[in-house]
Amino acid sequence: MTQNEKKTPVDVLVTGGTGKTGRRVVARLREQGVRTREASRSGKIRFDWADRNTWKAALEGVTAAYIVPLDASPSPTPAFVEQAVACGVERLVLLSARGVDVPGYFGASYEGEGPHTEGEAAVRASGVDWTVLRPGWFAQNFSEGVFLDGVTGGELALPVGDGAAAFVDADDIAAVAVAALTEDGHKGEVYELSGPRALGIADVLDDIARATGRRASYVDVDDSAFRAGLVAQGMPEAEAALWADALMPIRTGREAQVADGVRRALGRAPRDFADFVRDAAAEGAWR
């Protein structure tokens, strides 16, 4: 048996099964014939981080689990990991984030032990096979996420200056997750995930304009104006502060570093942002 020969588990639980990475993980697993349990707050298999009574039913009979954690402190991930191991789960793949182990990577809202750090510590100490995925900013934030309205509205205002990021395609994240869930050779690995090149926000909008004919302008704003804009849209001040601080690694250039996780896990280069834009445009993302 080669190192990465597939050993299909009896059942894989995907938490956040309707989210950006979760639904892609579910689709890939099912394409491979893996019995997959898609769990979410509104799905057929109900799973709610805030309701521990939903955890056991989601975990029963499962041999591997993809964990999309709740971004809250204290993190419920350690308790979930304990429950998963007690239910017989043998393999855990955790979605974390780039920079969680780098002091000062994010802003003040993220100082100290955060939910990702707590989750990583829990899977490491679980006693079962584990893999940690640390993606940077998702390319899909421009097509189905927080930046979409700015793109379609013609003006994207962000407090990132002339910073850049190697935006990672969520399809690559899902591909790495599926490999870690179904193959040998990923035990104890921490995969830093990024795209193959760094782009500034103006570069991103140029790529989208070339593919769609829809051009949006990038406007650099300061943190206070950005937060005030989010609050004016109804976002709580604390959450607005988290968003602003989460963007700091783009402003400082830390997200510009190209990581090798996709190549290490899959043996190929990550998808280019232009390829993501082409496919998203064909699917009608910015119509």
Results as ranks from 00 to 15, higher is better:
residue 5 E to D: 14
residue 8 T to A: 12
residue 9 P to G: 09
residue 10 V to Q: 15
residue 10 V to Y: 01
residue 19 G to C: 11
residue 37 R to I: 05
residue 42 S to F: 03
residue 42 S to D: 10
residue 47 F to E: 02
residue 72 A to T: 13
residue 74 P to N: 15
residue 82 E to N: 11
residue 87 C to M: 14
residue 89 V to G: 12
residue 89 V to W: 00
residue 100 V to N: 04
residue 101 D to K: 09
residue 106 F to I: 02
residue 111 E to P: 11
residue 118 E to V: 06
residue 123 V to Y: 02
residue 123 V to Q: 03
residue 125 A to K: 06
residue 127 G to R: 11
residue 132 V to A: 04
residue 133 L to V: 06
residue 136 G to I: 01
residue 144 E to A: 14
residue 148 L to F: 08
residue 150 G to A: 10
residue 150 G to P: 11
residue 151 V to D: 01
residue 156 L to R: 06
residue 160 V to Q: 03
residue 160 V to C: 10
residue 179 A to W: 05
residue 184 D to N: 13
residue 184 D to S: 14
residue 184 D to T: 11
residue 186 H to W: 06
residue 186 H to Y: 07
residue 191 Y to T: 04
residue 196 P to I: 08
residue 197 R to W: 06
residue 200 G to C: 07
residue 201 I to V: 10
residue 202 A to G: 01
residue 204 V to T: 07
residue 206 D to Y: 06
residue 208 I to S: 05
residue 208 I to E: 00
residue 210 R to L: 05
residue 211 A to M: 05
residue 216 A to I: 02
residue 223 D to S: 10
residue 236 P to C: 13
residue 248 M to A: 12
residue 250 I to K: 05
residue 257 Q to E: 15
residue 258 V to C: 04
residue 267 G to M: 11
residue 281 A to H: 07
residue 285 A to P: 00
residue 285 A to C: 10
